[in-house]
Nucleic acid binder design. Structure first.
Lengths: 213, 213
DNA sequence: GTTGACAATCTAGCACCGTTAGAGCTAAAT
DNA sequence: ATTTAGCTCTAACGGTGCTAGATTGTCAAC
């Protein structure tokens, strides 16, 4: 099989699950492809570009095969589905959110999906401007949530993950925090993601200028 | 001046603005403190812990001096102010959002601020559970937004930042995307942050169980 | 005053990193 | 047959996080 930037990025993504982002090296990637490390630099400018390619693959995985909303599907349901796809794609790889966040990514399926988002929202009565400003808010929430989830879940600490330490809270100084500790530490459940997503979607609805009857 | 973990982290934060996260090395940090590199390891376990300390400082800067809402201040205004403080604190340092995101950070001012958040929201009629789940959604949005802004703004690409490339959009295949390109590329303005923040806050209001009259 | 203990820093160096220079191989084009 | 282009190789450079172990400074106990 010939070595291509795409194959390199795909292999990098696979290795991510074994060694994490900080453990991923060009040499290891080369060995996985039965090639010497400098060979990679003929296909890829540098590691940063490789990470951008990996980010692009993650986003592409999320947006691949996305279809316009069904007849009985509200825009909220459809956008929520897209947000979940995005989160799932990032969760599929260790440190996936850190890789995907703020990396330059382009590609046919991404452009197509974005166009679909705009069309769905304008069909629902939003102006294109509203749509173009509201959708990134969803993405930013998704990325922020997932980065934190993976930081908490991940194995990036050699010793015990400090997140996992049972934080003892001074009940007299911080009574509310103490009373709510349970909710805070069941936080990696999908429920909290859905809760926040629901907030953002409800916010988009609430903020909309009701120009359409 | 004696070397302490706090001083090391503070110096690291200062250097961040000169060299960025990828350029920050222990040796350079040591030189800045007029010390040899291994000395740092007496005060700090490893670089990861140092980054956590730096993240803690950023969050502390954001939450330091936060006061309970004023008499004529709605909870929306107050939370929005907190969100802006958080964003400003991250923007103060190059790659600040990447450093702060998903790092373990604790500290007295942070705990105090979180308690204040819960109190403000419960005073506004939210249950503690609602408050404890809604506030992280705000933070996740802020972090996601700021990471992307800094990735776009930052100088982490040696050549021209690919984000800055004037993306030429196929007007016939992606008419809506093309028509909205302007809004997309004025994106680093504070306006878009405020727009998304407004969405999230409106969403919290909309989602609330109106148990209080 | 000497001794010891301990905190803090030092020198030296290991294993590994991203990356470059430049030589070598292979297969198609002339 | 020779050139060209595409791709991979070996060798190495400067730099990285980090550890081991010797060395210093300080200050209390004897």
């Amino acid at each position: 099989m010939p070595i291509t930037p795409d194959l390199i990025a795909r292999t990098g993504l696979r290795l991510l699950n074994e060694v994490g982002l900080d453990g991923l090296t060009m040499r290891m990637l080369a060995k996985e492809l039965d090639v010497q490390a400098p060979t990679l630099y003929w296909h890829v400018k540098n590691k940063h570009e490789l990470l951008d390619l990996m980010a692009g693959l993650i986003v592409a995985e999320a947006s691949d095969g996305v279809e316009a909303p069904g007849r009985n599907e509200t825009w909220q349901q459809w956008i929520a589905g897209l947000a979940r796809r995005m989160r799932d794609a990032m969760l599929r790889y260790r440190d996936g959110a850190r890789v995907a966040a703020g990396s330059y990514s382009t590609g046919p399926s991404i452009g197509r999906t974005f166009e679909l988002v705009l069309r769905t929202l304008t069909d629902a009565g939003f102006s294109t401007t509203e749509a173009a400003r509201a959708f990134p808010a969803v993405l930013h929430y998704v990325v922020g949530f997932t980065i934190e989830q993976q930081a908490r879940t991940g194995e990036n600490y050699e010793g015990p993950n400090p997140y996992a330490q049972k934080m003892t809270i001074d009940e007299t100084r911080y009574p509310l925090t103490a009373s709510v500790t349970k909710e805070l530490y069941a936080l990696d459940s999908d429920d909290n993601f859905e809760y926040g997503l629901h907030i953002v979607l409800a916010g988009i609805e609430a903020v909309r200028q009701k120009a359409v009857p």
